[in-house]
């Protein structure tokens, strides 16, 4: 098989299979990450999440630590970003007690809570 044919086959195969990740391998704890799945205008795109954080018992304003563009992704329930935000706070506050509630309002009015403030997230961070 020529390099060209391999290239075409790999390209098309990746495009046929990559969106399948959203349908077949989606993490139930990360339901709104639609990257690479060609889901323009989807119901998940319309979800609105809000994150309330507390550090050592005091309210933590995420906007004072992260660029607003990252917080927009948190508001879309993008868990890769949420986990990275948590990791960053825990890294800069060793031994801290970080609690967060991340709840999302879906387009049909259903409210989904992705993170409950019951555990110290920093205790879970490696």
């Amino acid at each position: 098989m020529r390099a060209r044919d391999l290239f075409i086959a790999a390209f098309l195969l990746s495009q046929l299979l990559l969106p399948l990740r959203w349908y077949a391998l989606r993490d139930p704890g990360d339901p709104y990450d639609e990257r690479f799945a060609w889901r323009m205008f989807s119901p998940e795109r319309m979800v609105r999440c809000s994150a309330q954080a507390q550090l050592n018992g005091a309210p933590l304003e995420l906007g004072r630590r992260f660029h607003s563009a990252w917080l927009t992704l948190v508001e879309r329930g993008r868990m890769d970003v949420v986990h990275a935000v948590v990791d960053r706070i825990c890294l800069t506050e060793p031994g801290g007690d970080l609690r967060m509630r991340l709840s999302c309002l879906e387009i049909d009015g259903e409210r989904v809570t992705l993170i409950e403030p019951t555990t110290n997230l920093c205790a879970e961070t490696p």
């Binding site: 799945a37 060609w38 889901r39 205008f41 989807s42 119901p43 319309m46 387009i107 049909d108």
Partner: peptide, 18 residues
């Protein structure tokens, strides 16, 4: 094709999402 598949969803077909 994938964009069409994504719309095979009750919340799209009902018009709520659009």
């Amino acid at each position: 094709a994938w964009a069409a598949v994504a719309k095979l969803d009750e919340r799209w077909i009902s018009g709520v999402t659009l």
